[in-house]
C-alpha cells in the first residue's frame, strides 16, 4: 500500500531521528515554526492500532521533544495532540503525534466551547463509557520464548554410542 509517510520513513526524507519503533519528522505543513511529528515506523492508520509499547515510547519521546521546543525554540508553551481519525482532523493515512511550539499571538485556537450538559446527560455518558472502560485491558509484555532442550535425545542412542557408554560404566571403579 502506498503510504507517503511509510515512504518518507523508508527513504529517510526529512527525518530527524529514526529507530525500529518510531520516527521523528518536521511537519511539512506546520502550524507554527516548530511543529514536530512522531510516527510509529510500522504502518498504523489510527493510534488504537499502535502496540502499547510503541505508544508509550512515542509519548515519552513527545515529552522530551516538548522540552526541547521550550529550550531550543524559546517556546512559551507546547501542545501535544493526537488527531485520531479524519473527524478529529487527521490528514495523513498514518497515525502520529503532533508537538506544536506555542507563542503568544500565534493565532492558533485549540480551545473548545464547553458544552452545558445536564446531570442526566453526564450520568448517561458515564454509564455508556464505563460499560467499556470496565473491560479495558492492556497488552502484557510477552516473555521471550525459552528454548527447551529435547531430553528424549539422550534416549535415542545409536548402538555404537550405547556400547561406548556401557564400556565407560565398566571402567568406573
Amino acid at each position: 500500500m502506498a503510504c507517503q509517510i511509510c515512504e518518507a520513513i523508508n527513504e529517510n526524507k526529512n527525518i530527524l531521528y529514526k529507530d525500529e519503533d518510531i520516527a521523528i519528522m518536521i511537519h511539512n505543513l506546520p502550524a507554527t515554526f516548530g511543529h514536530l511529528k512522531i510516527y510509529p515506523v510500522e504502518h498504523c492508520t489510527i493510534i488504537e492500532q499502535v502496540p502499547d509499547k510503541t505508544v508509550e515510547k512515542m509519548f515519552v519521546t513527545a515529552n522530551k521533544l516538548s522540552t526541547l521546543l521550550f529550550e531550543a525554540m524559546n517556546a512559551q508553551g507546547t501542545n501535544i495532540l493526537v488527531q485520531n481519525g479524519t473527524a478529529a482532523g487527521q490528514t495523513e493515512n498514518h497515525a502520529s503525534i503532533d508537538i506544536v511550539a506555542r507563542k503568544e499571538g500565534d493565532n492558533i485556537n485549540l480551545q473548545w466551547a464547553p458544552l452545558k450538559l445536564s446531570e442526566d446527560e453526564m450520568s448517561t455518558a458515564l454509564l455508556k463509557l464505563t460499560a467499556f472502560t470496565k473491560k479495558m485491558g492492556f497488552e502484557e509484555e510477552k516473555p521471550e520464548p525459552v528454548e527447551i532442550k529435547d531430553e528424549t535425545e539422550i534416549l535415542s542412542l545409536t548402538p555404537e554410542e550405547e556400547n561406548y557408554l556401557i564400556k565407560q560404566l565398566d571402567r568406573m571403579p
Binding site: 495532540l81 478529529a88 485549540l110
Partner: peptide, 20 residues
C-alpha cells in the same frame, strides 16, 4: 469510539498557559 459511535478522538495536552 465504541461507546459513542464516534468517528474519531482527540488526545490533547497543553503545556503552559499560552498553550491552553
Amino acid at each position: 469510539l465504541k461507546a459513542f459511535q464516534a468517528q474519531g478522538t482527540s488526545i490533547f495536552v497543553a503545556n503552559g498557559v499560552i498553550a491552553g
